[in-house]
């Protein structure tokens, strides 16, 4: 495409069948995990959230 470069594609649609509740709790409030739901990882996909580590 000439005007648009997609850098991330449709992530939200990939795993809409889960809802198993196995992922880490999140909390935006005082002194806790400092996590929003946006940075949790899906346990079902068994993906490691590598973004918290410095890339090799």
């Amino acid at each position: 495409m000439k005007h648009i470069e997609q850098v991330y594609k449709k992530a939200l649609c990939k795993n809409h069948e889960t809802g198993c509740g196995e992922c880490q709790s999140s909390c935006q409030s005082a002194c806790k995990t400092s996590c929003t739901v946006g940075n949790q990882s899906c346990k079902q996909e068994e993906k490691i959230n590598t973004i918290v580590k410095k890339p090799e």
Binding site: G19, C27, Q28, C35, V37, G38, N39, I51
Partner: peptide, 22 residues
Amino acid sequence: NFFHFMLDLEHGPCPNKRLTGC
């Protein structure tokens, strides 16, 4: 890594989780 800029844009949680937060 700054926690408030930490996003998983490829393998984030399911919409169920996103709808209910903490």
